[in-house]
Simulated assay, not measured.
Amino acid sequence: MLRVSNFRGVLGARIEAGSSWQVSVQEYPGMAMHAVLAGNAWLTTGDRTPLHLATGDVVMTPARVPHHITDRPEDDTGEPTVFPPDGARRALTVGAGPTLTRILTVFYDCDHATRTQVVDEMSGFIHIVGGEGGAAYLDDIVTLLGRELDQPQLATTAVIDGLIDIVLICMVRAWIALRPSGRRGTWLGWADDPVVEKAVTLIHRDPAFDWTTSSLAAATSVSRATLSRRFAAAMGLSPADYIAQWRMDVAAVRLRDTSDSVEKVAAAVGYRSVPSFTRAFARDRGRTPGAYRSHAVESRATPRSIRTRYH
């Protein structure tokens, strides 16, 4: 699912902070993750109580939520300067005096045209207190990430990229654990129902198969009515709607990431006719398959800027 939605992470900055500093993250289409490697900081937004962050803490912000990381939550002055999260893996030095706080920032985003989403479903702030991420091995992974940045070695870039992906999976696990009811009605809702989980697995495993609500019900050993009811309760969609959604998402990936012909892509998602696939894809994505492929090649999404304030 992460591959289908083109989910990706980019290292925004290694913040090396003294005293009297603020890093301001403006509205960003994806999520931001901040891991405190040493020291203390506060995360503030316009409408919530400042959140204290200590050594070992990790926090993930929701998509499109501007926020600030600072050592003085009551002080919001100073002119910002622009720092782009361009994956340069650079250190950002802010504040006065010696370094007291070290923070690692990672930005996560995806293809927002994909209908099967993680970013848009994970609502709220996720705060993992240092020492409480053991179930997902988050503490160890963040420590290793900081060590790789401090002491680059052979293939450090590959290691960092892999660890960034693993941190995301750990945060998804944490979100599920912290909000067990929050996944109901989202794509993660299948995790609450073994029948729906089996049906979703079958759809994912072979999107080209002629799946219907009836054939899925037979494959999961329940009645058509039972599957429809449980599917809607778990995921907020009917089986037929999810089949169509997943097929269009898979088709978009094939068009975006491969040179497969439109005919081959259509067959891979269960369409025997290219015209019927083209009509269905255009309804879903607002572009024909060919136009979608051209647009995807030309417009790879790039993260937006971070603004830093220091005084």
Rank of each mutant, 00 (worst) to 15 (best):
P80T: 07
R115V: 10
A96P: 06
D71G: 11
E74M: 11
G56I: 03
R72C: 06
L100P: 11
V65D: 03
D109S: 09
I103N: 03
T114Q: 02
T61K: 06
G131V: 03
T101N: 02
R72F: 07
T116M: 04
G78T: 05
P62C: 15
H67A: 05
V106P: 00
F83N: 00
S123K: 02
D86S: 07
F125V: 09
I69M: 04
T81P: 01
G87M: 05
A96Q: 13
G133Q: 10
I128M: 13
C110R: 01
R115Q: 12
M122Y: 00
Q117F: 02
G97Y: 12
F125Y: 12
G95C: 08
T70C: 14
P85G: 06
L51F: 02
T81W: 13
E74P: 09
E132D: 11
F107Q: 04
D86W: 08
H127G: 10
P73A: 13
V94E: 02
D57N: 10
A63Y: 10
D75T: 15
L104Q: 05
V65Y: 00
E79R: 13
V58I: 13
D120T: 08
E132C: 10
M60F: 07
D109A: 06
T49V: 14
T77R: 15
H52R: 11
G133E: 05
P80Q: 11
I69R: 01
T93H: 08
E74G: 10
V94F: 04
V129N: 10
V82C: 03
V118M: 01
T49L: 13
L100I: 14
P66L: 07
G124C: 10
G78A: 06
T61H: 07
T116S: 07
T77G: 15
V58D: 07
M60Y: 04
T55L: 14
G134A: 05
I69L: 12
G95S: 09
R90V: 14
E79P: 09
D109R: 02
V94L: 06
T55K: 15
P50Q: 09
D109M: 05
L104N: 07
L100V: 13
P98S: 12
F107V: 09
V82A: 04
A135C: 11
I103Q: 05
V106S: 01
G87A: 12
G95T: 06
I103L: 10
P62D: 13
P66T: 03
P50F: 06
P80I: 06
A96Y: 12
P73W: 09
L53N: 03
H68W: 08
V129E: 12
T70Q: 10
T114N: 01
Q117N: 05
S123Y: 01
R72N: 08
V58N: 05
E121R: 14
P66G: 05
G124S: 11
I103G: 01
G130R: 06
T101E: 04
D86M: 09
G95L: 07
E121L: 14
T49S: 13
G56P: 07
D76H: 14
P62N: 15
R89Y: 03
T101C: 06
T49K: 15
S123I: 02
G133F: 05
G78S: 12
R72W: 07
V119E: 02
L92A: 11
R89M: 05
V119D: 00
P84N: 09
T77N: 15
T114V: 04
